[in-house]
Design a protein around this nucleic acid. Sequence first.
DNA 1: TCCAATTATATCGTAATACGATATATATTG
DNA 2: CAATATATATCGTATTACGATATAATTGGA
Lengths: 150, 150
Amino acid sequence: MKVATEDYRALAALRYRIRLFLSEGDEAARRGGLEPQQYQLLLALRGLPEDAEATIYTLADRLSLKHNSTVELIDRMEKRKFVHRTRSRDDARCVLVSLLPRGEEAVQEVARQRITELRAGGTALVDALEMLLKRTPESRRKKKTRGVTI
Amino acid sequence: MKVATEDYRALAALRYRIRLFLSEGDEAARRGGLEPQQYQLLLALRGLPEDAEATIYTLADRLSLKHNSTVELIDRMEKRKFVHRTRSRDDARCVLVSLLPRGEEAVQEVARQRITELRAGGTALVDALEMLLKRTPESRRKKKTRGVTI
DNA sequence: TCCAATTATATCGTAATACGATATATATTG
DNA sequence: CAATATATATCGTATTACGATATAATTGGA
């Protein structure tokens, strides 16, 4: 079963939009002296839901990374004094990660800019997504005739 | 000017949603034997708008990468026989990148799965985005009182 | 027409990233 | 209590991404 060029274009366009959006944030992070993933870690720490503990397990989930990647990311950030680890009292297997003042400042700096920029890029992203999800009538017709996987 | 915890949470939630969405695609790519960015390159190639030429300059833009990163990505994919370069006749500075059959097959395999998965993740992403963009009435009130940057 | 400026791509160096594999310690389960 | 599961750390390897630098081709203005 072949994928129509149209679908490729829609997929590519969506990823382009997402990538544009994300790279704006990456640049904001870099301006604030952080690598993109480092900012994401700090943001995940700072923006954890109330009921969540900042274990490596949890952070790995929030960052959609394997635990070992998360460990190393935290290693580097601990080295730079942005975060620091403590062993949990409740469960000695668990490490809790917390923001240091330096990390708090850094994430704030970037987040502030990010909030400002968000309105600009966000709408285009929603549009691209909705377009892809809704599909054109043309695409819908194709679906029927070809038993497309969706 | 401080960023409210609520805003951090919204930003973090959005990135989480995006990251979930993207990591699904990453996994599909890996199942197809491609690294995530490699799949993105193939997709960008396959999904270029009609009026676009697959120069490194253009691909770098579509992937939101610096040109040198794009060059190296193409290097690796050319090595693996997924794509191949030809020097443009119109402008001898320009290299044109094209998909080889192997690349065509690979991108199709992943794109097919991706189209299937898209409906599942896409809606949640739109919701998270719209929530952040719209803001809650609570956030709007805060904006007025604090002269928030948005 | 000529040449400086600009553009497109390639290479190098470096740090970060991400995964699979493996290891150790702690908690849970039957 | 032993077996199993869970949480984190370390190692090896490939990929990625950027800044810096280099080379070649094209462009635009004098």
